[in-house]
């Protein structure tokens, strides 16, 4: 039986861990303060004869290595290359949440965007045109409510399609201002020459321009030995510090 690895990324307070529990049928109390997802949590589930390993990354606002959490989430997506990354967005604050989604889309095209808390948004009179969003982003987009368990099947079927290669998403690239674009173009050829397609060249160029020191350090380790960069092991979900 085929096993796919799925990562969950998203801002804090988007119900990522609730979705994790829903999918893996775990029943743990979720919440940032009491049971913050440290490093990452793993669980498994089955859907239509396919086995999935689900990895819950820490909730972050960005993946630009401003904190240990952000580094852990970024390293997982870029170096571990999960079969699909589900980006969980809070339907009630899409602008800020899309910031992270776009950062993920620059790292990989194996993405399904999942707009959570859609019931909450409806209650607040926020209407989201999912099809249009999908068009704009260029990746499958699904609206769900993790706590009321709506939209989960649709989400899983999109995840399966992306994982199996039935759908190959092509994210719409962000166009930066001319100055940055020009610099990217200067860097990309030498990056491609060095890394081939092991890492997305455009993303690496942006990180180089940003002077992302921590990423560079990790990248060097990764280039020398694909396994040595890993900092810490994953925790099993629900494993708590106390008792």
């Amino acid at each position: 039986m085929k096993t796919y690895t799925i990562a969950l990324a998203g801002n804090p307070n988007t119900g990522k861990s609730t979705l994790f529990n829903t999918l893996t049928n775990m029943r743990q109390h979720t919440g940032n303060w009491a049971g913050k997802t440290v490093l990452r949590a793993e669980g498994t589930f089955q859907h239509l004869d396919t086995q999935f390993t689900l990895v819950d990354l820490p909730g972050t606002y960005s993946l630009y290595s401003n904190s240990a959490d952000e580094e852990a989430a970024r390293d997982y997506i870029i170096f571990e290359k999960p079969d699909v990354t589900i980006v969980v967005l809070d339907a009630t604050s899409l602008e800020r949440n899309l910031n992270l989604a776009i950062q993920v889309l620059e790292m990989t095209n194996q993405v399904v965007v999942c707009i959570n808390l859609i019931d909450e948004a409806k209650r607040l009179g926020i209407h989201i045109d999912i099809r249009k969003m999908e068009q704009k982003l260029g990746v499958p987009t699904v609206a769900i409510s993790a706590r009321n368990k709506t939209g989960i099947n649709e989400l899983l079927s999109q995840v399966l399609k992306v994982a199996s290669g039935e759908i190959v998403p092509s994210p719409t690239p962000i166009t930066y201002n001319d100055e940055i674009e020009q610099k990217i173009n200067e860097l990309v050829p030498s990056i491609q020459e060095m890394l081939g397609d092991r890492l997305p060249a455009r993303w690496v160029a942006l990180r180089l321009l940003d002077g992302d020191e921590s990423l560079l350090t990790t990248m060097k380790l990764w280039l020398t030995d694909q396994d040595s960069y890993k900092k810490e092991e994953a925790l099993q979900y629900g494993q708590t510090a106390c008792h």
Binding site: S62, Y64, R96, N99
Partner: peptide, 11 residues
């Protein structure tokens, strides 16, 4: 510094 980055990320 880092705080600027954080502020930008938050909007």
């Amino acid at each position: 510094g880092v705080m600027r980055r954080r502020l930008l990320d938050l909007g």
